[in-house]
Amino acid sequence: MPEPGPSWDVVADIQLLLQFHFMQNAFLAGTLVALLAGTAGYFVVLRGQSFAAHMLSQVGFPGAAAGVLVHVSPVLGLIVFCVGAAVGIAAIGREVDAGQRLESAAIGSILAFSLGLGFLFVRLYGGSAQGIYAFLFGTILGITDRDVQLTFAVALVTIASLAAIGRPLMFASVDPDVAQARGVPVRMLSLAFLLILALSVAITVQIVGTLLIFALLVAPAASALQLTARQGRGIALSVALSLAFTWLGLALAYFTNVPVGFFITTLAFVFYLAVRLVKTRRTVVAPA
């Protein structure tokens, strides 16, 4: 692209970044997804459900393909598949499954099956691989105003729901036996959390892509949890990191013409790696 490159003048750079409507929309949607994923991701990592998040961000692919195949909206297919998968995981149950071996085996099986279905649907449709590619890596630079509004609604609902169930969900996540004895509906919360996650992923995945959702659901929260054991700070840090990676990734992609998804995932990964390395060194040098 022919735009002038970035300078050391930050204000000018930002003006440059936001001069086009598509970039404004990319920043708006990216910001909303980062807020949503940073918050939900904290619980994903705390509950050890990274693999479930991975599955939910992938499982929509056959759903979307099925939607196209039977001529209903791909979004409907996405929602049906994501919610179905969430119910599937919850049905396996965590109660007797402290090590989550059952859960992860169930997730692996469901995920493989759903990807197989996806290939079948794409073949039956006879469509090109282009659409799948767009789905996996997102089209954040082609977001419409309506997409932004939809993302806003989803982010609002997700964050409000998590605020409502956050405290008992925390209790059920760290200490399920005591939580249950204290009257917390542990299994119901487990299902509720997966459903919130499934719905928010289903709707945002077709806007920003499965890769971006998954990256923002795990790495920032994982880094935040390594850096602080305080709940409030942990969630705030997870959100802040998600925002930083998204904004920086979008800016770098704009000025270099390298895909956004690459920058955001790389930033998230490198930061996580650095945090882990520093922590490991500290434990080796000065054991607590």
């Binding site: 605020a163 405290r167 200490d175 005591v178 204290r182 917390v184």
Partner: peptide, 10 residues
């Protein structure tokens, strides 16, 4: 959490 972990809301 032992004090009010079972309550809804923040």
């Amino acid at each position: 959490l032992g004090l009010d972990g079972e309550r809804w809301g923040m």
